[in-house]
């Protein structure tokens, strides 16, 4: 579904990613972990089209999309969710969800079905559908940003640190949502510092250090390598 090979990128002339290669298959959750400043966010933003790579290639559904912008990528089904639960604060919750469908041209029927699914998983969003998004708590905003991405029905979802700034107790519903989303055939790539939480749902794990991938393996191998045990099942 998604193949990244030899990817290099950075801010200005400052290199951040060095020769990153990995792939993500449909229906699986891939965890990217690593220290602060290891380049995880840069990697997601480069794949998502916000940063232009300086070398290497990104292939999506077998086609080369290196250097494509989100304007091109989102309609094709590759969607990045930024960290920090960023919503459009002055719009209503429902309008935030509607905006998710602008770029993907999701049809009316598909949109309605998607919204029904969202409201089933996150009933609080239905309850607050007409409230301004800024009145939501951080966790609810994270649910909202994911919902906004969900209605665009991406084939690849890139999700940057969904737990950032959230109470940990809020994470299970969000992780479970991602898990069932992946089961529907979407490749989900998440960057997460709370590795325990993410390993519980991830199929594979990737460890980055100073801009390079230093480990790539199954969730169990990852756990063995790093000594981190997945959250209790």
């Amino acid at each position: 579904m998604l193949e990244v090979s030899g990817l290099c990128a950075g801010y200005g002339r400052l290199p951040v990613l060095r020769d990153v290669s990995f792939s993500a298959a449909e229906g699986e959750i891939l965890l990217i972990a690593g220290e602060n400043g290891a380049g995880k966010t840069t990697l997601l933003q480069t794949i998502g089209g916000l940063i232009k790579p300086t070398a290497g290639s990104i292939r999506f559904e077998g086609r080369d999309v290196t250097g494509a912008t989100p304007e091109d990528l989102v309609p094709r089904g590759l969607r990045l969710v930024l960290d920090g639960h960023r919503v459009f604060p002055e719009l209503s919750v429902f309008d935030n969800i509607r905006l998710g469908a602008v770029a993907s041209k999701t049809g009316k029927v598909a949109f309605d079905t998607a919204v029904d699914q969202i409201f089933e998983v996150f009933p609080i969003l239905k309850q607050k559908a007409n409230d301004k998004a800024r009145s939501l708590s951080g966790g609810q905003q994270q649910m909202l940003t994911l919902s906004q991405a969900f209605v665009s029905q991406p084939k690849v979802l890139l999700c940057d640190e969904p737990s950032l700034g959230l109470a940990m107790a809020l994470m299970p519903p969000i992780m479970n949502f991602l898990r069932s989303w992946a089961k529907s055939g979407t490749a989900v790539v998440i960057v997460e510092q709370h590795v325990q939480l993410a390993l519980a749902v991830a199929a594979r794990g990737l460890l980055m250090q100073r801009g390079s991938v230093v480990f790539d393996g199954t969730a169990d191998e990852f756990a063995a390598e790093t000594g981190i045990i997945a959250a209790p099942h």
Partner: peptide, 24 residues
């Protein structure tokens, strides 16, 4: 309209708008 909605939202978070695939 969705276009109007997008216009009215853009400056609230232009990067999130880009990430959502809006033609900013």
């Amino acid at each position: 309209t969705l276009t109007g909605l997008a216009i009215s939202a853009l400056w609230q978070d232009p990067v999130a708008g880009r990430a959502a695939g809006l033609k900013v």
